[in-house]
Structures are given as structure tokens and as C-alpha cells.
């Protein structure tokens, strides 16, 4: 199945980001296609390279970047990002900033859009 994933919450503060990541890993393992991942609201904080978590903890931004390196389209909403000081310069590799039109296309093209957040 072709899936798109929408993430509303920031890293560490909320489990949504971890749940989404685990969901995507499980979906890929089952052979599903991830049409794209879209970060909205505080979710835009998930992919800043400025984060530096303790070494014995998961590095959430790097995890997303690794998924991006596999060719999954990872998009950060520009309107939500600008409001929160997230710009191209602070992004980890393999993710991009773009508009809500990208979310629209993911929603239309995927068979299921799965949202994570409150």
C-alpha cells in the first residue's frame, strides 16, 4: 500500500515522532511504499541538525535523515517552519522545506494518510 505520514509534534517532547518512525519502519519491512513524510506544527523541529541529544539516546533528526537517504520524500512545511525559525541552513541532509501543496499531493496520491500527534 502507498502511505503518506503526517507528523504534528516536536521531537522528544512527544511520542508522536517516535511512533511515526516505528510505524514507517514496520510498514517498509512489510513491503509498503512511503509516498512521503510531512512535518507540520511543532513537527518541523524534528529535522534540525542543531539538536544534540545525549549520546545514549536516539538522535531523532539523524533517524529522519537516514530515511530520507533511502529516497523517501521528507518535507517540512515552510509556513510552520518560518514561524519557528527552521530554515534550510539548520536542516539535516535529505529533507526539504516546501509548501502545504506537497502535503496535498501526498494526501491525494497516497492510499492512506496516517497522522501522528494529539
Amino acid at each position: 500500500m502507498k502511505l503518506a505520514v503526517l507528523i504534528y509534534e516536536g521531537p522528544y517532547n512527544h511520542e508522536a515522532s517516535d511512533s511515526a518512525y516505528n510505524f514507517i519502519q514496520a510498514a517498509l519491512a512489510k513491503g509498503h511504499e512511503i509516498r512521503g513524510i510531512f512535518f507540520y506544527h511543532d513537527g518541523v523541529y524534528n529535522v534540525t541538525k542543531l539538536m544534540e541529544p545525549p549520546q545514549d539516546d536516539r538522535h531523532i533528526a539523524n533517524r529522519w535523515s537516514e530515511l530520507g537517504a533511502k529516497g523517501i520524500d521528507i518535507v517540512v512545511c515552510i509556513a510552520a517552519a518560518k514561524r519557528r525559525g527552521i530554515v534550510d541552513d539548520v536542516l539535516v541532509p535529505n529533507v526539504r522545506i516546501s509548501g502545504l501543496g506537497q502535503l496535498t499531493m501526498m494526501a491525494i496520491e497516497a492510499e492512506r494518510l496516517v497522522s501522528f500527534g494529539d
Partner: peptide, 25 residues
């Protein structure tokens, strides 16, 4: 489902509606 004020969800949700309305949906 959330109240309009006290968090940004509803406001940013409105922005999504306005964008998606421009598409063929």
C-alpha cells in the same frame, strides 16, 4: 476537535484548509 485558542493547532489547521481548497479536492 480542539478549542480555537490555547494552542496553534486550529489556526494552522485553517491554513491547511485554505491551501488544499486550491487543489482539485
Amino acid at each position: 476537535r480542539k478549542p480555537p485558542h490555547g494552542s496553534i493547532y486550529v489556526y494552522e489547521g485553517l491554513e491547511v484548509k485554505l491551501i488544499m481548497a486550491a487543489y482539485d479536492a
